[in-house]
């Protein structure tokens, strides 16, 4: 759509600008402020330069958390994206069953995150949870509060449970937009099921899949509540991801300087991914020609 140049449009955007500036810029400035200062307590601060940043870059703590975070995000993407596409391909195309599946699949997406944690915390318990009890009866040692592998599996399965439907719904929306003529053409060419997927469905889904990947990466990158409720970041630090570590540092230990430096570096990574996301979105809009 050709947009008219109109500088007065700024007035329409102004409320958003003021509101978001109040809730984003001011707090962010506080963080910047803390990141370059040190304190002896009693609210006396002095300039510390970039010391906290170099401290954080040298400490293993942040790198370990970042490493765990990247492994976690990588693992859940590797499971959720293919699984989501697979589920989308198997969804009914229309009618009652399509709505039925849509409604049930959306359910986990709308559950408060701490309740998601609570559900899995209960579900995995050996004494009262269905999953834990069954595994225990099968003779598999499973204890997500003590065993690192079990904790990781629980957190990953929980995320797959929580968010695969989102990937599936996005992929499904992409599939729905493919005109029937494409399938008919493929039929005339006697294309195999795989060829239909590879040369028709996958390219047509590429845009939405890109959104799905970025959204999942983004949201898993700042995951906090669910693993916090289930494992509390443990056993040890095994499931302490970036956000959990940051909250521990800032609110638990009140190490404002390091936490602020950590926050800013965290935020820079987010900014970078946001930019990729934005570019993808804009290209998608252009391709759709709207």
């Amino acid at each position: 759509m050709n947009k008219t140049v109109n500088q007065k449009a700024w007035f329409l955007v102004l409320p958003v600008l003021i509101l978001v500036a109040f809730s984003a810029v001011i707090p962010l400035m506080t963080v910047v402020n803390y990141s370059v200062q040190d304190t002896f307590g009693r609210n006396e601060f002095f300039w510390a330069g970039l010391e906290w940043f170099s401290d954080m870059l040298d400490s293993d703590r942040m790198w370990d958390a970042l490493g765990r975070q990247l492994i976690f995000s990588g693992v859940i993407l590797a499971i959720e994206i293919p699984l989501g596409i697979f589920v989308a391909l198997n969804m009914p195309k229309s009618g009652f069953w399509a709505s039925f599946c849509l409604v049930l699949m959306s359910l986990p997406l709308l559950i408060p995150w701490n309740v998601v944690g609570t559900i899995w915390q209960i579900f995995g318990r050996v004494d009262i949870g269905l999953l834990g009890y069954t595994l225990d009866k099968l003779g598999i040692t499973y204890n997500y509060t003590q065993d690192i592998t079990a904790a990781w599996i629980t957190v990953v399965v929980m995320d797959v449970w929580h968010w695969t439907s989102l990937v599936a719904l996005l992929a499904y929306a992409g599939l729905q937009s493919i005109p029937d003529a494409y399938y008919q053409a493929a039929k005339i060419d006697q294309a195999s099921r795989w060829a239909v997927f590879r040369y028709i469905e996958l390219p047509k889904m590429a845009g939405v899949l890109m959104i799905a990947i970025l959204l999942r990466f983004m949201d898993s990158f700042m995951i906090y509540t669910e693993p916090f409720v289930v494992t509390g970041g443990g056993p040890g630090n095994a499931t302490t991801f970036l956000s959990i570590d940051l909250v521990k540092m800032a609110i638990g230990q009140f190490d404002l300087g390091p936490a602020a430096a950590f926050s800013l570096m965290y935020f820079l990574v987010i900014l970078l991914i946001s930019w990729v996301f934005y570019t993808v979105m804009v290209n998608l809009d252009k391709r759709d020609g709207v």
């Binding site: 001011i26 983004m218 906090y224 936490a259």
Partner: peptide
């Protein structure tokens, strides 16, 4: 996309 954890304390 901003992580709430960054904003909690401020």
């Amino acid at each position: 996309m901003a992580p709430p954890a960054v904003f909690a304390l401020p």
